[in-house]
Write a protein that binds this DNA or RNA. Structure first.
Lengths: 193, 193
DNA sequence: CTAAATCATTGATCTAGATCAATGCCTTTT
DNA sequence: AAAAGGCATTGATCTAGATCAATGATTTAG
């Protein structure tokens, strides 16, 4: 149940058995069926979520009603509207399940209780954020300064596992492309080699 | 000399006078003349930099020799190649001064010494990262899902101070646009109202 | 104070990717 | 197993923004 999270945390910091025990008491396990929502825009963003098994995606809906995929999360990833979680505001993203999924949910207060009791947890959070920051930076630079084809190839290289599990039109959305464009790019790449 | 940094840190966490004193011993003040480099791609990224006064920018140069502005930093901002700093690798960004600038430089080891001695500094770093993460997320979503005009208007709204200090073609680069395009957008906006 | 860069603006094209539309292929659902 | 809704693919256009080019304006250097 908690194996994946344990591995994830202890790969970054070390914990005493008591500390780990305490952390597990602060997590709420939950199962989500494919297509169900975990969070909807406008909800209070009371929790952050760790994926044990399965696949989730977060996305925004713009004024024109268009969906934009912000993040995918598979086993071993955290997902949530960090901005709303931190500022205690209403979520501006939706999160739903792309597969039947098992998660651990951690409420804001639980998070804070852990920080109080488990000193190294603060470092874990910092390291987690650092990693995400660096990854997002790469994505941003790629978004601003490369062609559609290059974006696709980079993603292929960086997240081959996700590319295989997720519908193609959602990958297009994640990259800021239209499904038709991605389809043509794939065709071109296939014929190139 | 250290006022700006002191204000910045204590706005997020509280420190004892001794702790603050220790932090100041770990900073290296430096002045940089306009157009000088603070960091060049390929350098070891040994430090992270806090801006006391003035304005810096970080940018990449792509295969075609084109510059892409990644970040601006004015008084009260940190700047550096975080990715390279964390992983102890060579920088992939350049950083140079857009005005005569005063900074405090903190080496990786100094950073770690502070974390050892000043427990709340870890939280400061986490909060700093969180804020940056949220801001970058906004930028990414805007980059992927909005028109050039909207990007410009958003930036105007979010960083009016930077917009006034920085050459227009660098703002274009930051937004992933060409200078000509930004010029036309500005013209259109001016005529709209 | 003058010459030389550097920068913003404007006009005339070009093009990557979007949009519109149609077809067939898988998944779900019944 | 049939029907239906969601997907990927392909073709025919369209368009936002890029590119190329020229002209002033403004900054910088000597």
């Amino acid at each position: 149940m908690f194996d994946v999270l344990h591995k994830h945390i202890t790969s970054k910091v070390s914990l005493t058995p008591q500390e780990w025990e305490f952390i597990t008491t602060q997590c709420i396990p939950k199962k989500i069926r494919k297509k169900q929502y975990l969070l909807q825009a406008g909800d209070k963003a009371e929790f952050f979520t760790f994926v044990n098994k399965g696949c989730l995606r977060s996305y925004t809906v713009d004024d024109a009603g268009e969906e934009h995929v912000v993040q995918f999360a598979i086993e071993g990833w955290w997902i949530g509207d960090l901005s709303a979680f931190l500022t205690n505001e209403h979520a501006s993203y939706n999160i739903d399940a792309l597969e039947d999924t098992e998660v651990l949910m951690m409420e804001r207060d639980a998070q804070e209780r852990i920080i109080e009791r488990v000193p190294m947890y603060e470092r874990y959070l910092r390291l987690l954020l650092q990693g995400n920051y660096v990854a997002m930076h790469r994505r941003l630079v790629s978004a601003i300064s490369t062609t559609a084809e290059e974006k696709y190839l980079r993603m292929q290289k960086q997240y081959p596992d996700i590319m295989q599990r997720v519908p193609q039109h959602m990958i297009a959305s994640y990259l800021g492309l239209k499904p038709e464009t991605l389809s043509r790019i794939r065709k071109k790449i296939a014929s190139d080699k």
